[in-house]
Design a protein around this nucleic acid. Structure first.
Length: 479
RNA sequence: GCUUCUUUAGCUCAGUUGGUUAGAGCAUCUGACUGUUAAUCAGAGGGUCCCUGGUUCGAGCCCAGGAAGGAGCGCCA
């Protein structure tokens, strides 16, 4: 008989017919009820064993975590917790799981802290929470490709190994095949990278944007979706050393087009998850509601998970300029009462506390801030006519902070070269990039979305390490 | 990197003013029961009290240093 996935068995109306399912035991109750899960859905199928007339040797091997092949008749359940169940005819134990060993793992049938689950990242897939998170993570990735494909974007693979650190987006991981103990040296006693694999110093990418711009200035609309690496010593719940980033880039788009695209995009993803991940979302929703009920009122979510997603889908994002934001902050209660740790003044970079105030207290919805002072943003962002600000935008989400950073790019060659000078960026190294401005330059814009931050938002997980299968953070590269 | 909190059984945690044999629930094992939904009942096993040093007649508890983890901040996506 062919195996049927549990998600299909549960949907099936064919009671009375025989099925074969394979999966892992979640629990074995009363020597009679096996809860079996195969990962196709968060739901388990209940397999009912007539233990009085069953091989005891097999029953003994059925324990939490074991892999089974179960053959039996699909029947309407006599119990109230499920619509259908399998009346077992035959069980083959595919892989045993020693209970004495299993009790040391996250697979034991009880609630665990997320910290403990993280220590066994290789086993946490078997839990309800992480099963749900990673099925949703897939759905978000798929939705992203679908969104762009449906709009005629081309998926562009930008290099993971790069020779430029021009963007200055952060500390980089160096890649080398040189002997680390005795590297070849130049006459000056420096490491001689000319003898390295690529004949120069190279790093893991911190952004595919500059390369994506080249694609956009020929293919029109492109996006990247790949791994990104930052060697920052960041110890927070929203930073990873290895994460995935989506960077669309569109020729002939200005900042307004860019904002519209971003908003459509984020709404599309939230909506996709709401309509396609019902069971997993409901589980995470209930989990959060339960957790919240044990917290003091002040620490609870104002909106629950489902409502937060619906809110993003149904409401316009609040758009305002940096200059307006500074004014709002200066009029705010915490500012007047001296509650902010950092001062608010035009020209400063907004601190987390300021962004959180705007998103969580003042507007209570996603916020797009635009037109930041030139000095605090990257060299490639387009200079506004006021001479002080650039056509930048940051999208701020409640609880997560900056989820998207983007801009209209500086397309005027002379202006871009001036900015290179101002920001100490080597024109020589970026000659290939400047060529786009030499040959048929045109206005264009794009943004970068932190994939894991989006997954955090749609799953309600509050630590970024819990939305990536194998988190890489300072001092941690396990498994 | 900075601030702050935490570290006691496989897990989650309690542990009084420094006092003799360190506890609970869950998990595991044994037995009973058997249409259960984190099954129930009875019993059992299970401890480098994070590490190092100090104070003390005596330290899980006090002091110093260190490590790991959480939360917040900075850097950012």
């Amino acid at each position: 008989m062919e195996r049927t996935k549990i998600i299909d068995v549960l949907r099936s109306e064919a009671t009375g017919s025989d099925v074969l399912v394979k999966g892992w035991v979640r629990s074995f109750r009363a020597n009679r009820f096996i809860a079996l899960n195969d990962g196709s859905t968060i739901k388990n199928i209940q397999a009912v064993v007539d233990f009085e007339n069953f091989d005891e040797a097999i029953l003994k091997k059925i324990s939490t975590g074991a892999a089974l092949a179960v053959t039996g008749t699909l029947i309407a359940s006599q119990g109230s917790g499920q619509a259908v169940e399998i009346q077992v005819k035959e069980i083959e134990v595919l892989g045993e799981a020693d209970p004495e060993e299993l009790r040391k793992t996250v697979m034991q049938p009880k609630r665990h802290s997320l910290e403990f689950l993280r220590e066994q990242a290789h086993l946490r897939f078997r839990t309800n929470t992480f099963g749900a998170v990673f099925r949703i993570r897939h759905a978000v990735a798929f939705a992203i490709h679908k969104f762009f494909n449906d709009r005629g974007f081309f998926y562009l693979h930008t290099p993971i190994i790069t020779g430029s650190d021009a963007e200055g987006a952060g500390e980089m991981f160096r890649i080398s095949t040189l002997d680390p103990i005795n590297p070849p040296l130049t006459e000056d006693g420096e490491v001689d990278y000319k003898q390295d694999f690529f004949g120069k110093q190279v790093n893991l990418t911190v952004s595919g944007q500059l390369e994506a711009e080249l694609g956009a200035m020929a293919l029109g609309q492109v996006y990247t979706f790949g791994p990104t690496f930052r060697a920052e010593n960041s110890n927070t719940s929203r930073h990873l050393a290895e994460f995935w980033m989506i960077e669309p880039e569109v020729a002939f788009n200005n900042l307004k087009d860019n904002m519209d695209l971003t908003e459509d995009f984020l709404k599309y993803i939230a909506d996709y998850v709401l309509t396609n991940c019902e069971d997993d979302l409901q589980f995470l929703h209930d989990r959060e509601v339960k957790e919240d009920s044990q917290k003091p009122t002040a620490e609870r979510n104002e909106l629950n998970l489902m409502d937060r997603l619906k809110f993003v889908v149904d409401n316009e994002f609040k758009r305002l300029t940096y200059t307006e934001a500074i004014e709002v902050l200066k009029r705010s209660k915490p500012y007047k009462k001296g509650k902010f740790k950092y001062d608010v003044e035009w020209g400063i970079d907004l601190q987390s506390e300021h962004e959180r105030y705007l998103v969580e207290k003042e507007f209570k919805c996603p916020v797009i801030l635009t037109d930041y002072p030139s000095e605090i943003k990257a060299f490639y962002m387009r200079q506004n006519d006021d001479g002080k600000t650039v056509a930048a935008m940051d999208v701020l989400f409640p609880g997560i902070g900056e989820i998207v950073g983007g801009s209209q790019r500086e397309e005027r060659l002379d202006m871009l070269r001036k900015k290179c000078g101002d920001f100490n960026v080597s024109e020589e190294e970026l000659d290939w990039y400047l060529d786009t401005r030499r040959f048929g330059t045109a206005e264009h814009a794009g943004f970068g979305l932190g994939f894991e931050r989006m997954v955090m938002f749609v799953t309600g997980m509050t630590n970024i390490r819990d939305v990536i299968p194998f988190p890489r953070t300072p001092q941690n590269a396990e498994f």
